[in-house]
């Protein structure tokens, strides 16, 4: 078989697989219980927030535990904007993303000069500060009482009120962001990011503005995190400070690690695990946190590249008969 024919066959298979995935995605909620759909909705929301963390870690080597803060900013911006200020929902969502982006830019400039453990600790500190502020700034956040009555999102007279309906809002958003991040990774900017991860000195010589690129990716990740937070607020319609604590920050990082930080679609699998596993394990009684921890350890030991890395290896083996996978450089 010629290389051309082989690649055409591979394209055909990829195309058919995409169509099959799409059909399953559309049909899925019709066969699931309300609570299962609820889990899938949260998987979608967490996929979006986790994408930012995963890309930062996998492509820039930046460990961020600050995502829960930006997620919270998005949620509170849309909650405060719609219930107190009476602003339209899209305006509030964009506002939350902008506030997050500005804060990320301001803290990113000093914090991203750090690396390794120090950077992780600094971002953890940011998450803690954000949590305290959410608690203390009662006039915006309602403190421990939270904010209720957050309106549902409507589009052309269709209200995304139930898990079933919200599923068809959150997943197209998640898919669009997956695509956007994939485009970013394949662009010259994505190549520059991977270059500075491999050899920072040589990247600087090539004229890649390392410090400013890191800040930009951090800002992007914060804006995407805020978007996820806004979706969350509109979905549950009541938010309180408990949703934006440290465990959420760690959860987002887990999504990235479990999904495989070098794999963009892997984030979905990571998000599904982090959402579904505690939910189903909790039915087994009080030992469920222990079982979750055990499941995590097993996953990390047996899938060092995350779910995404595992799938990529499998796919490469199946499609190429031993040819090594390589990312396309362009064209």
């Amino acid at each position: 078989m010629t290389a051309l024919a082989r690649s055409a066959t591979a394209h055909l298979w990829t195309g058919m697989l995409m169509v099959a995935v799409l059909l399953v995605w559309v049909a899925l909620p019709w066969f699931l219980s309300r609570s299962a759909i609820d889990i899938l909705v949260f998987t979608g929301i967490y996929t979006i927030a986790g994408l930012g963390v995963s890309f930062l870690l996998g492509q820039c080597g930046i460990v961020s535990l600050a995502q829960s803060g930006f997620y919270g900013i998005g949620a509170y911006a849309t909650a405060y904007g719609t219930t107190v200020l009476g602003l339209p929902i899209p305006v509030c969502i964009v506002l939350g993303m902008l506030v997050s982006a500005v804060i990320a830019a301001a803290v990113g400039v000093p914090v991203l000069r750090l690396s390794g453990h120090f950077l992780a600790l600094a971002t953890l500190a940011l998450a803690i500060i954000a949590h305290v502020l959410f608690l203390e700034l009662e006039w915006i956040t309602g403190g421990t009482l939270g904010i209720g009555g957050i309106p549902r999102i409507s589009l052309f007279g269709f209200t995304f009120a139930t898990p079933f309906r919200f599923y068809y809002l959150v997943w197209p958003s998640a898919f669009a962001l997956l695509l956007a991040y994939s485009l970013l990774l394949r662009s010259r900017t994505g190549i520059a990011l991977r270059a500075m991860r491999d050899a920072p000195a040589a990247a600087a010589v090539a004229g890649i503005p390392i410090a400013s690129l890191k800040v930009r990716i951090f800002v992007l990740s914060a804006a995407v995190g805020a978007f996820a937070g806004s979706l969350f607020a509109h979905y549950v319609s009541f938010i309180s400070v408990d949703s934006f604590a440290i465990d959420r920050a760690i959860g987002f990082l887990l999504i990235a690690v479990l999904g495989g930080v070098r794999s963009i679609p892997g984030t979905i699998a990571g998000a599904l695990f982090v959402t579904a596993a505690p939910n189903y394990l909790s039915r087994l009684g009080d030992i469920h946190p222990l079982l979750f921890a055990l499941a995590l350890i097993v996953a990390v030991i047996f899938l060092p590249g995350g779910f995404g890395g595992f799938m990529a290896n499998l796919g490469a083996k199946l499609s190429s008969g031993g040819r090594r996978p390589s990312a396309p450089a362009g064209g």
Partner: peptide, 14 residues
């Protein structure tokens, strides 16, 4: 100092 994980072509694109 090559970009180790990048292909030769990607190195040159960088």
């Amino acid at each position: 100092q090559v970009f180790r994980d990048l292909t030769v072509r990607e190195n040159l694109v960088a």
